[in-house]
Nucleic acid binder design. Structure first.
Lengths: 106, 106
DNA sequence: TTGACGTGATACCTTTTGGTATCTATTGAG
DNA sequence: CTCAATAGATACCAAAAGGTATCACGTCAA
């Protein structure tokens, strides 16, 4: 189990961080813009963003004095892979997909 | 966001608990059997199992004086649903599946 | 009934986590 | 240059998390 994988799981454990991810799904934001959506200081939001970054779930690009935070689209990959091992819903989808693939083979 | 969903994410945040889930995927176990796989006390394992249960990821059945812990197959559902919103890999699979479904419709 | 076994529960300790307050550095407008 | 705006860094605090030690409770075998 990679440290990166653990950091991703840890990042997802906090409700505020999950909300931040939902926000960033809508649009990229500076720290201040993210902070506007919560009743806590910018410093606290900054900490959450750092943890999300450590988990590989977001990336930051610099534009002048602004730091734009954006989702890392493939950031969920490790988490998703790990979880899919247990998920029957996922298994059902794969089962449904398999015949279609075999059909394509013909 | 449901409290249940949060408890599931919280349960997954700890490496020991993720290992326990991997163990239970292999076979159902009593608390003592789970504890054999770790270098910590049975009481600590019991706490982890309680948190996993709170998150709906495992269920416990009573057999005499033994408590058998087992995976809750659909326990990952909420977590999986939430994550799938971000996962491009998942989107790719759905995209691949869609033509096959449409083909079935004909 | 008498224990040993498997477990539940509680008190307690240490570390981590989530948060604020505060200070510093860099950028861009005038 | 000056200075407000944006952000990084650190110290500090309260609460939560992870762990141990310990005791109490039901269960099964002898």
């Amino acid at each position: 189990m990679s440290a990166m994988e653990h950091m991703a799981f840890r990042a997802l454990a906090d409700p505020t961080r999950r909300e931040i991810l939902m926000l960033l799904k809508q649009s990229d934001m500076t720290i201040a813009e993210v902070a506007e959506n919560f009743q806590m200081t910018r410093a606290a939001i900054k900490k959450h963003l750092t943890i999300l970054s450590d988990g590989g779930l977001i990336v930051t690009r610099v534009e002048g004095r602004a730091r734009i935070n954006a989702l890392e689209p493939q950031g969920m990959q490790h988490v998703f892979d790990w979880l899919s091992y247990f998920d029957t819903f996922w298994d059902d989808r794969l089962s449904a997909l398999k015949p279609a693939i075999e059909e394509d083979m013909k």
